[in-house]
Amino acid sequence: MSRTEPYARTIPHPLFERMIINDAKTPDEAPWQPERQHEYGYFPGCVDFMDVEVKFSHLNKGDADHASIAAAAIKLMNAAGIDPLILDMNSFKCCGHDQLWQGQLEVFDELKAHNLRRMQESGIRTLVVTCAEGYRTFAVDYDLPGQGIQVEHITQTLRGRGLKFKSPEPVRVTFHDPCRLGRMMGEYDAPRELIQLVDGAEMVELENSREKALCCGVSSMMYCNDATKAVRKKRLDQGTDAEIQVMLGGCPKCYMHMQCLLNEERMDPGEHNHSFEMLDLMQFLSACLVEEAT
């Protein structure tokens, strides 16, 4: 494999990045008070931005719907008896994971200062995130547990809440471990336990799973080029080898990048051999949720 072109050095989503940076640079000092006290807070994260401003999936005629992840998470939490405070973009800013990992420490510090102040104002005890990157950022880089706010990935929150799931039809699924949730935060079991609860879903492990999981390749929105696409393709090929029908991810970013490549391949149907769908775990669980008559 030889390469004559130099590597691309631009970050592929200038609009998305510019918006977050502008957001960070705009001071927002106004005090904020939630209407009532909540035990749990739910942070949708940049799912708010995606698909609305970025038009991410329109590049390849895709149908990745990120807002449904947040909706599904709220539905599942309500079914589990949790009434979360939605910490959306009206009062909060992006958690700054991408900026930190791109090295833009100044931007990250401003986002962190703002979000930390808002966290204290919100008065929540436990922060729930659907995004593995957000989970790592709040737990480690913000050090929220050190300030009295527990941080949980939503799979940890929903685990052991007595939820019942039934798949509409028998389906063979797998779980793609996000690198932030698995290798960095050490949470492998919670999503698997949730998937085991689903009636009619057969869980298989990919060739590389748990701490050996392959990455989706575009962590922190750094690159989308041939090299990272090759990483993703390798991961999807493993799904084909395991003869799965749905690949589940624990992070909206994984969902986004995998789905993007799938859609891109489907524009030219002769090339690909990936006959399965990528879904976020929240979307899958919410579709399988058995509503109990109350």
Partner: peptide, 16 residues
């Protein structure tokens, strides 16, 4: 030289 630092996808497999 820049390439190494900016090409890493920070997946953490090396640490694993």
């Amino acid at each position: 030289d820049g390439v190494a630092m900016w090409s890493c996808i920070t997946c953490g497999m090396c640490t694993a």
